[in-house]
Computed example of a mutant assay.
Amino acid sequence: MLGTARTAAHFTDRRRDIAVEVKIGVQHAPREIVLESGQSAEEVEHAVSEALSGKSPLLSLVDDHGRKVLVPADRLAYVEIGEPTARKVGFSAL
């Protein structure tokens, strides 16, 4: 039983190692919103399409710190979804 719990936790932690960068342009706003999300690119795309089709009045995304970002669907100018990348851990000289 303990081994099963560790395996499930391992998969959960493994998913957090992948981040998708999302850039959101908002009409009448001088800067874009940039966030890294633990959601998959497909999940982000689905949320954007729901908002743009009128099924949802808000685009709702969760960043990698668990904060929810809400943007009114009628104010979306563009959404750029980056490729999933592994998060870097630790310090190194560039």
Rank of each mutant, 00 (worst) to 15 (best):
L61M: 04
A47H: 06
R75T: 03
S53Q: 08
S49A: 11
K88H: 12
D64E: 12
K55M: 03
G38P: 02
T85L: 09
E83C: 06
A51Q: 10
D13Q: 10
S92P: 10
Q39G: 12
G66V: 07
L59W: 03
R15W: 09
T4C: 08
V71D: 04
I33Q: 11
I33E: 09
I18K: 05
G54C: 05
V26K: 00
D63W: 05
A41V: 04
M1A: 15
I18P: 05
A86G: 12
A41H: 02
D17W: 12
S60Q: 15
S49D: 12
L70I: 15
A51V: 10
A51P: 02
R75S: 07
A77V: 04
E42W: 00
V20L: 09
D17A: 08
V62L: 02
E43V: 07
T85N: 10
V44Q: 01
V34Y: 02
K88R: 13
S37C: 00
T4V: 14
A41Q: 08
G54Y: 07
R15T: 14
S92L: 11
L58S: 01
T4Y: 13
P84E: 08
A77R: 12
A73V: 08
S56L: 07
R15A: 13
S56P: 02
R6F: 14
L58K: 01
L76W: 02
V79R: 01
E32T: 15
A9M: 13
E36C: 10
D63I: 11
L61H: 00
G3R: 13
P72Y: 05
L76H: 01
S56M: 10
R67W: 11
L59C: 05
G82A: 11
L58A: 01
S40E: 07
E43M: 08
K23S: 10
L61R: 01
T85H: 13
D13H: 10
R14F: 11
A41Y: 06
P84V: 02
F91P: 13
L61E: 00
V26F: 00
R31M: 08
V22C: 07
A19H: 14
E32N: 15
E83W: 06
R6W: 06
E21Y: 02
R15C: 09
F11L: 09
V69G: 03
T12M: 09
D63Q: 03
V69A: 10
V22D: 11
R31Y: 09
T7C: 15
T7N: 15
V69Q: 01
L52T: 10
L76D: 00
A41F: 04
S53R: 12
Y78A: 07
G90Q: 04
V79I: 03
Q27Y: 01
V62S: 07
E43W: 05
K88Q: 14
R6K: 10
L70F: 14
P72H: 06
K68E: 14
G66Q: 00
S53F: 09
D64F: 07
V20M: 06
V48K: 01
E21W: 12
E32C: 14
I18L: 10
V20G: 08
E32H: 13
E42V: 06
H28A: 11
K23T: 13
I81M: 02
L52V: 09
V34W: 02
G90D: 03
S37A: 03
I33R: 07
V62M: 05
S92D: 15
R16Y: 10
I33W: 03
T85E: 13
G3W: 08
P57H: 04
V22H: 04
S40Y: 04
K68G: 05
